[in-house]
Design a protein around this nucleic acid. Structure first.
Lengths: 242, 242
DNA sequence: CGAGGGTTTGAAGTGCATCAAATAGTGTGG
DNA sequence: CCACACTATTTGATGCACTTCAAACCCTCG
């Protein structure tokens, strides 16, 4: 990856979408590139924060743990997302642990640079504001889903969010990471995930072969899953992939 | 309430804490004051947004509903909090319905003013950013709690957040709104709340008389509730009241 | 005093978690 | 290319937590 690649990668994120080239260039010069395997811990909850990250490819799991080992998955982020930048507003402590969930390429950028940019460039603050607002909306929906949707519906909703919004009829998708991890992401046990997926399978017509899932009829799936939601498919603002 | 009262009320919010007096004055001049009873709907989810609100006193419930009437309570906010301002970043649509949960005094302010201020005053953007970051952290914890804590623990955690952080030993508190509403806020049924509260009562020693609850030993309560949480009492960042 | 909402209690059902074990799938070294 | 080791996933059996439906109780307020 050369400097231009980095700049391009930055420009794809919500955070830097509207930034001038020269700002991106400044950032890119201090950026380091990480090619990582699955299961690599980037930082730990409550660590002193010095860097934030941009996901170029792969998936990163954000989570926290209790003393007795229970784990709460905060989110699992795909390419073009950033994480760790919010620690600017959290006394420079990371608010979660971050670990690669799949082999991933990341960019690591000093938080100081972002801080400076926020101070000196009012557009940067607006960008961050809008990117944070969008993220917040998603998390907000997440909480709603935990409240009103049952396990099969949450899985259905998750599948729909993997689909291109314009898709119609039938389509085949691939789970982007382990089923165990999808389960955690949706706040359920692996066993529950497995059973809930078979329930969904018979309810709306799916063919499941390992990580690949063929949806026979998107409409059926969405009317099953979205009936217990306050917004309906295609719920544009909640796409996992942009 | 005169103009100075309004300015003082604005200055207590996270959003405007760091604003100059003259900015607050401009806002105050376009602000209207609402004294409302319980159960008053301020706006409905997906309405076109024109105003945002500041809570001077009382409590406001934010929620969304599905087609079949299921309700997801997003939050219940106390004095000194603002709501509706995020619709700036949501295509000018309110992302939830807002309704007073108790008799309340509110300030209504045109979103346009805030937008302008965001454009012209880079400190405003930073303020909003930091206030949004804090709110996001709280919602994030909320999701964690739904995942790891059971019903009695969630209630315990809720009680602890009503307490002054410096309190030690024993203390009496009053539920700020209906038990039914507390239940909804914590994502459980009223019946579950009632039963979970009695379980908590015997487990950590509470005296419950209607809405007033005497906690015999804060330490016992926090070790009961916070054992299933990734942060421990006093979890400074999660106080309901500031 | 009576009406109506808030709250509690009881009984029964459902969904998810847990524990245990079998099965499938993957990568390794021989 | 196969056997082994290890992990991911599924399946079964059981228990617990929370929900649901129903009814009683309580409290407040007109």
């Amino acid at each position: 990856m050369n400097e231009q690649n980095i700049i391009d990668a930055l420009a794809k994120t919500n955070l830097f979408r509207h930034c001038d080239q020269h700002v991106l260039k400044t950032l890119a010069q201090k950026t380091s590139i990480k090619n990582l395997n699955k299961g690599n811990v980037l930082f730990v909850n409550k660590d002193e924060a010095a860097l934030f990250y941009v996901i170029v490819s792969g998936w990163v799991k954000l989570f926290r743990e209790t003393l007795d080992g229970a784990q709460a998955v905060v989110d699992i982020l795909p390419a073009e997302h950033t994480f760790g930048e919010s620690s600017i507003f959290e006394n420079n402590q990371y608010p979660y642990t971050a670990e690669t969930a799949e082999p991933s390429t990341l960019l690591a950028i000093p938080l100081e640079l972002l801080k400076n940019e926020l101070q000196n460039n009012s557009n940067m603050a607006l960008s961050m504001l809008s990117s944070m607002a969008e993220y917040r909306k998603q998390q907000d929906k997440e909480l709603e889903h935990r409240t009103i949707q049952n396990a099969p519906q949450r899985i259905g909703c998750f599948l729909l969010r993997l689909i291109d919004q314009n898709a119609k009829g039938s389509i085949t998708i691939h789970l982007p990471y382990d089923k165990t991890l999808v389960a955690a992401r949706l706040g359920m046990q692996p066993e529950t995930f497995s059973r809930a997926l078979s329930k969904l399978k018979t309810a709306v017509g799916l063919d499941v072969k390992g990580a690949s899932i063929h949806i026979k009829n998107i409409q059926d799936l969405s009317s099953y899953a979205c009936s217990a939601c306050t917004s309906a498919f295609p719920c544009k603002d909640l796409q996992t992939e942009k």
